[in-house]
Each structure stands twice: as C-alpha cells, then as structure tokens.
C-alpha cells in the first residue's frame, strides 16, 4: 500500500515538473501563470495530434513512420508556402481561437443548439446575397444576427421553450433560404461552399473580414470573460455582483451569431457548430478550472484546424469535415484519458 502511494506521488511529481516547463513556452501572456495540471493537458493534446498524423501516415505508407513523417513534414511545409493555403491557415487559426473560446460559454449555458440554429438560418442570408448580388457572407451575418435577436426577444416575451423556439426559427429560415435559392437559375457554387464550407476558397477580402472580426471578438471575450462566466453560472449572482445581465445576455447573443456566421466559411452551415462545441467539451473533460477550460479549448480548436488542414491537403479530403474529425479524435482521446484517470 505504502509502495503504491509512493509510486503515485513520484509519478505525479514527474509529470508536474515536465508540464511546468512546457506551459510557459506555449501560452500567450494573458493566460500566465497556468497550473502544472493545465500544462499537462496541453502536452496531452499535442501528443494526440502528432500521434494521429503519424499513425495516419504509417497506415498508408509501408516505409515506416520515421521516413514517412519526414516526407510528410516536407510536404506540409511546402504546402504552407502556397498563398491560398496560407490564407486558409490564418483564417483557420483565427476561427479556431474564437469559436472554441466562445464555445466555452455556449456549452456551459447548454446553448449548443443555438449555434446549429443560427448556422442553418443564415442560409437565407446566403440566398439573399446570391439573388441581389450582395456579398453572401455579409448578408448571412445580417440574417444570423437578426435570427439571434429574434430568439433572444421571443425567449423573454413568450413561454415557449428555447429549444422549440430555435427549432421553429431555424427550420423557417432554412426553408425560406431554399425557396429563394430555387429562384436563382443555373449552377450555384455558393450554396455548396456555404453548406459544407471551403476554407481553400478564402480570398484576401474574406481573410481581412475574418481577422478583424475575430480580433475584436477575442478582445471582447478577454475583457468580459468574468461577466460571461457569471451569466453562465447563475443569473441572480451575476446581477448581484453588479453585472447588467440583460444587456450582457443580448450582447452575448449578438457576438455568438456573428462568430457562427464567420465560421461558416471554414466549416459550412452543416458543421460550424462542431468547432463551437467539440473543443470546449474536450477541454471540459480534463480542465481543473474555468481558466484551464478556456485555454485548453482554444488549444484543442487550433490543433484541430492545423491538423485538419494538413491531413485534408495530404489526403485530398474535404477540409471542413477533416477538421471536425480531428476535433472529434481529440475529444475521444480526452474521454479515454479521463476514464483511465478515474479508474487508476
């Protein structure tokens, strides 16, 4: 018994020392200091992503993991010299940061279906853009925000349950979008691009829009994370701690709607909510604190985007779907780790 305790304490000490060295290297200044446990989580996530890439490569090539990995690494480095992939990477990193960050509050408030609803409803915006010649991206942002405001108001003015309300509004908006798109004759590449996302078609203008919005949203989330946390935890406590709960709730719905529509370019209407939900859920499995959940969630999001882009380029698979699969691999890896941790 004594031997076992000693073994555990030594093992724990080793892992803490290793992680303590790592976290200062990887994390941005606003998140320091971070506890050793959180560092360990980040290392775990990194290990998962590299293991995933190596195993994937080994399976396809019989030369062995070492040589294949170096070959693949060269391929990836060369690929990221291409301007279109650089744009895709930058946009992916921006969205891989803010979608999971915002997703922390979405999952804590159990609002995952809201993301789904806004994404689907924005199809009406895309259709309006296609029909009127406007930028479909901006019209989708407009419709997304409008539907977000409608959900916010109807939740407060009626006794309808939020999930039913979102279900009604998103199905209605989706139907309107499909009818509007049917009025436009001929091939509709925008529709496919918006439905499934195509990060590789991101142009300089898209990149500027995504970067500016992402930077603003990131700053807002950093500044108001206390208010958003308290709102997610308990509205009465939030109000008593001096927070204007109704104003912040409204504000949260708006930035959530904008962020989701920004993410459509990356993952498409069908898959965008994955990056809002999977990385925070991954981090929540292991994080010992809220701070850890936020940092872990952003790391998982960025890793999913980078790994997804690389794998999709190498295997010529749809980018959005591969990013989501990478995020899912991290999630199930964390789940397994948690189960193992609990059983040991």
């Amino acid at each position: 018994m004594a031997k076992r305790s000693r073994y555990i304490s030594i093992r724990r000490k080793c892992s803490l020392e290793t992680s303590a060295k790592v976290h200062y290297v990887f994390l941005p200044a606003p998140f320091r200091p971070i506890s050793p446990q959180k560092g360990a989580e980040l290392v775990g996530i990194l290990q998962y992503s590299f293991a995933f890439i190596i195993l994937f490569g080994t399976k396809l090539n019989r030369k062995g993991p070492g040589s294949y990995f170096s070959e693949v690494s060269m391929d990836i480095i060369a690929a990221f010299q291409l301007p279109f992939l650089q744009k895709a990477l930058l946009a992916g990193l921006a969205l891989g940061l803010i979608l999971p960050f915002l997703g922390v509050f979405v999952t804590l408030r159990k609002m995952s279906f809201f993301g789904e609803g806004i994404a689907h409803a924005s199809l009406t915006g895309v259709a309006l853009g296609v029909l009127t010649g406007m930028d479909p991206f901006l019209s989708a942002v407009g419709v997304g925000v409008l539907v977000g405001i409608m959900i916010y108001l109807l939740e407060r003015k009626t006794l309808i349950a939020p999930d039913a309300l979102i279900g009604v509004l998103f199905a209605t908006a989706l139907a309107i979008g499909l009818i509007l798109l049917s009025l436009h004759r001929g091939y509709q590449p925008e529709l496919i691009s918006f439905l499934f996302g195509n990060i590789l078609t991101i142009n300089s203008y898209d990149l500027i829009v995504i970067t500016i919005f992402s930077a603003l949203i990131f700053i807002v989330l950093i500044v108001f994370r206390r208010q958003l946390t308290m709102l997610a935890l308990d509205k009465e406590s939030a109000w008593l701690s001096g927070i204007r709960t109704e104003a912040f709730d409204f504000f949260f719905y708006i930035i959530l709607s904008v962020t989701i529509v920004l993410g459509i370019k990356l993952l498409g209407i069908i898959l965008v909510s994955a990056l809002l939900v999977i990385p925070p859920s991954t981090a929540k499995l292991l994080a010992p604190s809220l701070h850890g959940m936020i940092v872990g969630s952003m790391c998982a999001g960025i890793l999913a985007v980078v790994a997804g882009l690389a794998v999709s380029y190498l295997l010529d698979l749809p980018t959005g779907a591969v990013i989501v699969l990478c995020a899912a691999v991290f999630f199930f890896g964390s789940l397994a780790l948690r189960v193992l941790k609990k059983s040991s």
């Binding site: 804590l108 997610a232 406590s237 701690s241 604190s289």
Partner: peptide, 14 residues
Amino acid sequence: FPITVFEFLRFSQP
C-alpha cells in the same frame, strides 16, 4: 461546471 472556489469568489467580487 469547471469553476474553482477561488475563481468563483474572484469573479463574484472582482
């Protein structure tokens, strides 16, 4: 909800 005791008190009374 992964908030710690300290985070909760800090956020409640900043």
